[in-house]
Simulated scan of single mutants.
Amino acid sequence: MPFSQQRTVRSPTGADLNLFVKQADGQPRAVVQINHGLAEHAARYARFADFLAARGFRIYVHDHRGHGATKAPDAPLGRFADRDGPAKVIADVNAIHDLIATEQPGLPVILFGHSMGASVALNYLLAHSPRVHAAAIWNGNFSQGLLGQVALGILAWERMRLGSDVPSRLLPKLTFQAWGKAVPNHRTLFDWLSRDEAEVAKYIADPLCGWDASVSMWREVVSMALNGGKDASFAAVRRDLPVAVIGGEKDPASDYGKGTTHLANRMRKMGFSNLVSKVYAETRHESLNEVNRDVIMNDFAAWADGVLK
């Protein structure tokens, strides 16, 4: 089923955010605020929104800057901003959160993020945790360390040679393309996303998916992930916050689930007492589009039910 609403929300950053809303079936119990991944868009979460709406959740999901139908003077497709991209992305998320607080006063908000959206959600959490009832950090990798610094070095070289606002030539080869080639007997270079051939085909056919991000966007995506990799960044986050850290065993983007386990272990060592984590066997990057998505979505719903009690 389509979303209940699609509308434009003006952010204080100057972006016109393309927002989808799904009404809950009956009186809503909570809001799930979804953050999508790199080189995709909010409309791809319609099935998940339908699933959650049937269980009493209201869903808000917007296209991030440089993605989908969101428009901003400094953010064409593939670029967050001319400067301060991460800060503007987080400010946009906060603008949607403000809207939720106005339209659904008093309802708890569960923050959800997939892949790049996991970095966005985590960075939002690091700055605004009092506003969030619980957080689901899916399919991210915050343990890049030296590799992340190497990526920034490559991108600095590309920026010097090519400029910031052109597609990176090297990062797609080191990420999307390398991950696709790593899948045994792959049919396409996007098979790393899912074992479901139909879902991969839909992604490839979607003109708003799979494009090459600019040098500046890659720099900012890597920087957000590296920020989430610093224990000091978590200083202001309350340690009893319910958090679910989820990944896939066959997801090259999260180092085959090792990134999931690393983040969960770090947070437990930092004293997070209400954290659950799971790496799903045989599961690739897009959990919500995988062949075992019904199991994964039901597990999310059970966790969300638990944190609302």
Rank of each mutant, 00 (worst) to 15 (best):
C209N: 02
S223H: 11
M1Y: 12
E220S: 12
G85H: 04
S233F: 10
Q5F: 13
Q144G: 11
K230I: 12
V183Y: 04
I100L: 00
G210L: 01
A135N: 04
P184N: 04
N123H: 04
Y60Q: 10
N274M: 09
A301Q: 11
S273D: 13
A182F: 11
A43W: 09
V166Q: 08
K22N: 13
T70V: 02
G56Q: 01
G271A: 04
Y280C: 03
N123V: 07
A178Y: 08
D212W: 06
Q27A: 14
K202P: 11
S254I: 05
G66A: 11
S194H: 12
A232R: 10
M297C: 10
D92N: 04
N94D: 15
V221D: 05
A225F: 07
N139G: 14
W303F: 08
L99S: 09
D255T: 11
E103I: 08
E249P: 05
V291N: 08
E103W: 11
P242G: 03
V109F: 01
G85S: 02
T13R: 04
K250W: 14
I204M: 10
G229T: 00
A15G: 06
G271Q: 06
N289E: 04
M224K: 03
D25M: 13
K181V: 05
A91P: 02
F20S: 12
G14K: 01
R29F: 10
A205V: 09
A156I: 12
V89Y: 03
H41D: 05
S214Q: 09
D299T: 01
G229Q: 02
L38R: 10
H114D: 11
A127V: 09
G145N: 13
I59E: 01
A253T: 02
F51Y: 09
H36I: 07
K173R: 15
N18S: 14
D82M: 10
T188D: 08
L146H: 14
L52M: 09
G68M: 07
K258C: 06
P76F: 13
L125Q: 03
L38K: 12
T102W: 09
A236E: 12
D255K: 14
D299K: 03
P105K: 06
K250Q: 14
R293W: 04
Q27T: 15
G259P: 01
V295T: 14
L19K: 09
G145Q: 10
H285C: 07
L288D: 13
V183C: 08
V276G: 06
V132G: 12
A15V: 00
L155W: 02
A81I: 05
I110E: 00
